[in-house]
Amino acid sequence: MKQILELRVNGDRHEVGVPTHFTLLETLRYVLGLTGSKQGCDKGDCGACTVIVDGEAVLSCIMPVQEAEGREVRTVEGIAGRRGAHPLQKAFDLTGAAQCGFCTPGILCSALALLEVNPQADRDEIARALSGNLCRCTGYTKIFEAVLLAGQAMSSGREPAEIIGEP
């Protein structure tokens, strides 16, 4: 059984026919071809599928797609602006916070949802915001550095590279 839904993803409107049992993640990946959001467990345990819905980080692998209708969905593909990478992406790049990259889209979404509300979040607040996003490569230390740096950039309007004194 399929159903026609209207979705708003990264500012674009899509009218899509989706199987009624599909999750938001399945719709993003298999219907819209937005494969940046990852399936790490399909049970809401690992956070790799995290996207932003109406400003809030949600687990798209356990959200029925119907619940996203009429709401603003943002995925990793929509983080960069027209003028290039977002400060959060630049901060991850500069600090080496992405290793294998598989958890990264979800972590970026969780971090962005936090920083847009609270760019001056401290380490404990970041730890709590990211505690539903598993990473097996980094030990999280560099992810904390990246999110703290991005928060500084977002609240000061300065470039992350400038803040850490990179050329």
Partner: peptide
Amino acid sequence: MAKLTGRELYVDDLPSA
């Protein structure tokens, strides 16, 4: 940067039509 924009293609991201 591909890992930070969602453009990196892992095996399950390869087209599957």
